[in-house]
């Protein structure tokens, strides 16, 4: 077993109005019995990711190259960081970086850096364009979805879904389109930002419900806490949410984790169509959501359990979560010495 104190690297420090899950993951580790004294290394893509400057949470941050620069540049940077920090575990928290980390998993393991991530096959299985097939295999409902890469395909897809329709980016962002012109505009914007394909999805009116969950990679659900967003920003991000009690949602989560043999954190987004009393699976995100700390407050420390499993420990499933909890995000102006910004900008380390 690795000797304490451990050094854990975490990405996703962008605690902004479109937040990543790195800061809440670190907060969860800091509050755990097992990892409260761990050295936390932040891995940042941008110099203004707020987590870089949260020195009570993050011991040191290094910038890392964007996935578009290729795996070799990422592995070279991680090797440099490892030489200085002796990393024990890495916890990637962005959808877009996961393929690179997954491809590097065995090379990182050879360096002594553990992780718990899905395989590329599992990652792809839940991707937006493969979701209809997965839902069919698992016996879950999902809105009709069409994968489009060209304008002809876009027009055809919209003729199938009708209006309004959801136009979704490959990795992030979704917009409602009430006409072909709106759909075209969203198609151009999303394909320029996230690449093709873009997904056209049937619009379902209902209440969005979500689950933050953790699988052990052998089909067992280690933990799950369902919630409903109670305040949504104009960007569509949950700014407040409340824990709910929904057995059907939990059953769907168990089925997904069992059916995919999912290893690691995930977020399940579903819509409850109240009129027809039916749950639709909208998305499976391959990492913890930014609201994962709500699960910690309910007695399920998923990030701690993930790191323990990454280290090869057996973690028993959580059997209970506290109801009656909610979260509200807030904004807070941190005041940071300019030389800290200078150091992360010029040296890539802080």
């Amino acid at each position: 077993m690795t000797q304490e104190p451990l050094t854990i690297a975490v990405t996703g420090l962008n605690a902004t109005d479109n937040p990543g899950s790195g800061v809440p993951v670190i907060r969860a580790l800091r509050e755990s019995e097992r990892f409260r004294n761990a050295r936390i290394i932040g891995l940042a893509y941008e110099h203004l990711e707020p987590g870089i400057y949260m020195h009570d949470l993050v011991d040191k941050t290094y910038t890392i190259p964007y996935p578009s620069l290729g795996q070799e540049s990422l592995v070279a940077r991680l090797q440099y960081i490892h030489q200085h920090e002796h990393l024990n575990v890495v916890v990637p928290n962005y959808d877009a970086e996961l393929p690179s980390f997954i491809h590097l998993k065995s090379r990182l393991e050879a360096l002594g850096i553990a992780s718990l991530m899905p395989s590329i096959e599992q990652f792809e299985q839940r991707s937006k364009h493969n979701l209809p097939k997965l839902c069919k295999d698992l016996g879950l409902h999902t809105p009709q979805s069409e994968v489009v890469s060209t304008l002809a395909e876009l027009r055809h897809a919209l003729s199938l879904t009708g209006y309004p329709a959801m136009i979704k980016g490959k990795f992030y962002e979704a917009y409602i389109a009430r006409s072909y012109e709106e759909a075209l505009n969203h198609f151009y914007k999303l394909s320029a930002k996230w690449g093709i394909p873009v997904i056209v999805q049937q619009y379902i009116q209902g209440t969005e419900v979500n689950v933050t969950a953790l699988g052990d990679g052998k089909g067992q659900l280690i933990g799950a806490v369902p919630s409903r967003k109670t305040y949504i920003t104009p960007m569509g991000k949950g700014w407040a949410g409340v824990v709910i009690d929904d057995e059907e949602l939990m059953e769907a989560t168990r089925r997904i984790v069992e059916g995919t043999q999912w290893p690691g954190g995930l977020e399940i987004e579903m819509l409850r169509d109240v009129r027809h009393d039916r749950l639709y699976l909208i998305e499976i995100n391959p990492r913890f959501p930014a609201w994962v700390y709500l699960a910690v407050s309910c007695g399920q420390n998923h990030p701690e359990a993930l790191v323990r499993m990454a280290l090869g420990e057996e973690v028993p499933p959580f059997t209970h979560y506290d109801r009656g909890k909610m979260f509200i995000r807030h904004s807070w102006d941190m005041i940071c010495p300019l030389d800290e910004f200078e150091r992360i900008s010029t040296r890539g380390e802080l």
Binding site: V209, V243, I244, R272, R323
Partner: peptide, 20 residues
């Protein structure tokens, strides 16, 4: 069954997250 009512008149539906 999912409705909790407090003495102060706060109703919470644990199944949906709605409060009144």
């Amino acid at each position: 069954k999912s409705i909790a009512v407090s003495d102060s008149g706060f109703l919470f539906n644990a199944a949906t997250g709605d409060s009144f």
